[in-house]
């Protein structure tokens, strides 16, 4: 077992242990911090798999946004005090058996792979496959504007300037971004619409509600609603 595999195994064991602690810990704050540890472990595994951009995005979005949001709400609303709101009554066996059944089914499906280990393929050289020019079949008819004979200037200048190796090319910001914009531009735009709808949805959900006397009123969006009501 070489060094990289040993490192990946140690990180995987740590990640699984902290994931178990997320589910089993009684205090919600502890669960949130073990969730943070799990997500950081997954980010390290992304980096081992040469997905550098995804590792950065994982830390930015999860550790920077999702866990902070959960911890903020926990401390503001005081859900962590009672914390342990009980397991599913008399259904613990059902939950455990369903989860272990999925684990066994997946392990059985993986057993076919484990007979012959899944190997990482050698990375393709970027000269064989220019990134900025997708195959014409992959382009949707509505996005014909993206298909131009000349690659966009930022791609061309980057290719002239650096000519990265295949190792740097796989999973880099430039490669993933260029593939995303050229092949999946519609999904890219739909994500921005989804984020806008999420912002508006959160503000509408928490707008202008009277907070309970024992809870703080500084909720995202509630101050906006209160001011608009008073105005």
């Amino acid at each position: 077992m070489d060094m990289q595999n040993l490192f990946a195994t140690v990180i995987a064991a740590m990640t699984l242990a902290s994931a178990l602690m997320v589910v089993l810990s009684r205090n919600a704050i502890y669960a949130a911090f073990f969730l943070l540890l799990t997500l950081l472990g997954v980010a390290v595994e992304y980096a081992i798999l040469n997905a550098h951009f995804l590792a950065v995005i994982q830390i930015l979005v999860y550790a920077g946004a999702v866990v902070v949001l959960i911890v903020f709400v926990l401390m503001m609303m005081g859900f962590g005090r009672g914390g342990f709101q009980g397991f599913l009554p008399a259904g613990r066996q059902i939950a455990l058996s369903v989860g272990l059944l999925v684990l066994l089914l997946g392990a059985g499906g993986l057993g076919g792979l484990l007979g012959e280990p899944l190997r990482p393929a050698p990375m393709a050289s970027p000269s064989n496959t220019p990134i900025g020019q997708p195959s014409p079949k992959a382009l949707r008819p509505a996005l014909q504007w993206a298909k131009s004979p000349v690659p966009p200037p930022f791609l061309a200048s980057a290719e002239i300037r650096t000519q990265p190796t295949a190792q740097e090319n796989f999973g880099s910001v430039r490669t993933v971004g260029a593939y995303f914009i050229t092949h999946n531009a519609l999904i890219f735009e739909l994500i921005s619409v989804l984020l806008l709808m999420a912002i508006l949805g959160v503000m509408v959900l928490l707008r202008g509600q009277q907070a309970a006397p024992n809870t703080s009123t500084t909720v995202v969006g509630s101050s906006h609603g209160a001011s608009s009501h008073s105005a």
């Binding site: 699984l16 989860g99 993986l110």
Partner: peptide
């Protein structure tokens, strides 16, 4: 190196999450 450890980790995370969804009753959990 082999990639099996990553597949096993993904399977383990999914199963632990599924057990958590079925087991816990607190909405934040």
């Amino acid at each position: 190196y082999s990639l099996d450890i990553f597949l096993l980790l993904g399977l383990g995370l999914f199963s632990i999450g599924l057990i958590g969804v079925l087991l816990r009753r607190n909405a934040l959990f």
